[in-house]
């Protein structure tokens, strides 16, 4: 069988390229947050827990900038087959049946702390890094799709056909399962995930940062305004939190 993986880097290591970057200026003059990137030679550590916060009040109705950015960044070109094309992030429209209130919000892999996908995976291809990012090792995934059955958030896609034009930093393969990597290649470089960067150009609804660092912007915001987990009743402690739902 033809594989189209273009890199043999084990994603378990995913050592970043550049040195630590202390702060990232997203728009000129706006210092959004401090990201603790780890140096090249340092292993991923559980001192940090990467997370996201999404303020649905700011999320633009009809805006799909995060989705587009994700597709571009990770080379998710589809085949015009919505039922089988991969979607790592999608925009959800919610309507309160009682009040008729409508809002939209992006949903992607929630990077659960006790991730059902990791628990059920027979080979250990689904795994959680020390810093909380949940990934699929494309080299040992056998394509059983049990993780897709187990994920409560519909976060995963199965690669249903041959792929072309893949990105080196986001290897994919027919017959394996994939989902949002929180742009681990960028995070390890001290950058924000592509969706967050894109969102911050206009609506500024997404925040990325270290949930373990009480001084990070995301932690401060969560402390001040609170943040909800989708399906908190399942007790999975996801790394992605929402405000305004």
């Amino acid at each position: 069988m033809k594989t189209v993986n273009t890199t043999d880097t084990s994603k378990r290591k995913f050592l970043g390229g550049a040195a630590a970057v202390a702060g990232i200026a997203i728009a000129p003059g706006v210092l959004l947050q401090t990201v603790n990137a780890k140096p090249d030679n340092e292993a991923v550590s559980n001192k940090v827990r990467w997370g996201m916060l999404i303020d649905t009040n700011k999320c633009g109705d009809g805006c799909t900038d995060c989705v587009t950015a994700c597709n571009t960044e990770n080379g998710l070109t589809g085949f015009e087959r919505p039922e089988t094309d991969s979607q790592w992030i999608r925009k959800l429209t919610l309507k309160d049946k009682q009040t008729g209130h409508v809002q939209t919000l992006p949903v992607m892999c929630q990077h659960c702390e006790t991730a059902p996908c990791v628990d059920v995976c027979p080979t250990g291809a689904s795994f959680k890094r020390e810093d909380g990012i949940v990934l699929v090792d494309k080299h040992i995934c056998i394509g059983c799709r049990y993780c897709m059955m187990a994920c409560p958030y519909k976060a995963r896609s199965f690669v249903h056909e041959d792929l072309q034009d893949q990105k080196d930093h986001a290897p994919r393969g027919k017959g394996t399962v994939e989902s949002c990597t929180m742009c681990v290649h960028k995070v390890d470089n001290g950058e924000n995930p592509a969706c967050v960067t894109a969102c911050n150009k206009e609506h500024k609804a997404m925040y990325f940062g270290d949930l373990n660092d009480a001084n990070s912007e995301i932690s401060k915001r969560l402390k001040q305004y609170g943040g909800k987990q989708i399906r908190a009743d399942l007790g999975l402690n996801p790394g992605v939190r929402y405000q305004g739902v």
Binding site: E83, R90, K91, T93, L94, K95, D96, K97, K154
Partner: peptide, 16 residues
């Protein structure tokens, strides 16, 4: 369908 937001009407490009 999986219930991401019980009690709400949900729609998306991903068949939610």
């Amino acid at each position: 369908p999986l219930q991401l937001f019980p009690g709400m009407e949900v729609s998306s490009s991903f068949f939610d």
